[in-house]
Nucleic acid binder design. Structure first.
Lengths: 231, 231
DNA sequence: TGTTTAAATTGATATACATCAACTTTTTTA
DNA sequence: TAAAAAAGTTGATGTATATCAATTTAAACA
């Protein structure tokens, strides 16, 4: 029986995602051979909504914003993509086009894996399929939450939620707020840039947060959570 | 080698969903033995947002509306669940609670299948897993479309989209509009009932549709599509 | 290092839509 | 079949938030 080579183990470790732990030596080989490594510079688009998607991306290193666009100039930020996460999983097995865009907010190191390879592994390895399904399931729950947020919350609640979300990432990436513009923040909350600025100032006046240039320090997380819940 | 019994074949046919075609005799047995059949009356809730979900539902016969609720009295209709479709797939493998509600709009015949049984089959049968993943993928694409609709379209476009969506179902279920109230329609469009009424009247005046009591006949689908696209 | 470009800020104005209220019609139920 | 409840309809009013315009500050660039 085949066993994993040291090389393969390193590879799997680098991927740092639970689902890859279930792969057999042959399957690891398949992923390794059908992947392409790509570097993206800050500001580059990893995916563009509506373009052809024959592959899934896997973020090895770096941060990106996933967002949806209107025909016009508006966009809405859905999440920050972190290392160990997939990009493009959501649409690759039905629509053949990406249903969202994503843009690097730091330099990124990414794998592209052909969807045929992924499909092949799912067919032969049920455990891998199940762990992917768990990811789909999580994403689904997330999307429902986003729909609720967009439908039922207004400015204050949305902004609070956006700030709490980003603040959650701060321990791991302390300069996260410095990377984001006011427009980025506004797009996370789904409001206009001007409204975002006004809300931030007003939250600062109420001692709920502190604005140091572009950095933001949440002072009263409890109150912010309260605002978030109230809507 | 085991083969499918006549009984099992009937069962599979009744399920009428591509993913079940891939099951082995043992797996069919597992689904059959771990399922519960339930009848819902028009108006009953099949799922309630936030409640514990240890099972997946499979619609055998009947129609239901899937919707998300706010804490208050508002709801937004996501889709009409038709025979052959799953309910609760989206959250069952991550959150253990339903992330949406659903209500029968006709009497419904439904299977409940324990998620442990589904998980077991996915683990052992990659083809089944892959076909489920295709469903997840479709649902995902749908949810992204909904997010875009909610974010970027206004009244007219949303109403047009809702009407086109329901009109698509009309060939199969000719009385679909008669089943739905103005509030249901409004909740599909994500607008107030009053606005929905006014929009319908205005669309009638423009000869885009015809209102016969509760029934709606789309006269100018092209123009409606136009309105839908314009937003 | 000065110059251009982009981002942030602020108050004034505009608007799409919800909410409210009052009424009519339809459906349910007793 | 009458009475009550629910659904549908219409116009008047209110409001959250976008848009606009004008200015300041910061970042990029040559």
């Amino acid at each position: 029986m085949k066993t994993l080579q040291k090389d393969d183990i390193n590879f799997i470790c680098e991927l740092n995602a639970p689902c890859f732990q279930a792969l057999s030596p042959d399957e690891v080989q398949l992923v390794k051979s059908s992947r392409t490594q790509v570097q993206f510079r800050k500001g580059d688009n990893l995916t563009k909504q509506g373009t052809f998607a024959s592959y899934v991306m896997f973020m090895v290193d770096g941060l990106a914003i996933q967002y949806v666009e209107s025909d016009l100039t508006k966009s809405y930020n859905l999440r920050i993509i972190q290392p160990g996460e997939f990009i493009g999983l959501s649409s690759v097995f039905s629509a053949n086009t990406f249903s969202y865009s994503s843009v690097a907010i730091t330099d990124c190191h990414v794998f592209l894996v052909e969807k045929t390879a992924i499909a092949q592994i799912i067919s032969s390895n049920g455990i891998f399929g199940l762990s992917l399904i768990k990811r789909y399931s999580e994403q689904n729950v997330n999307l429902y939450d986003i729909i609720r947020k967009v439908l039922y919350k207004q400015m204050n609640g949305r902004m609070a939620e956006a700030l709490l979300y980003i603040n959650n990432i701060k321990p791991k990436y302390p300069d996260i707020f410095q990377i984001l513009t006011r427009k980025d923040l506004a797009d996370f909350a789904g409001i206009s840039t001007e409204s975002a600025v006004k809300l931030l100032k007003s939250l600062e006046k109420d001692h709920i947060l502190e604005l140091n240039g572009k950095d933001i320090n949440i002072l009263d997380e409890l109150k912010l959570t309260e605002i978030c819940k109230r809507g």
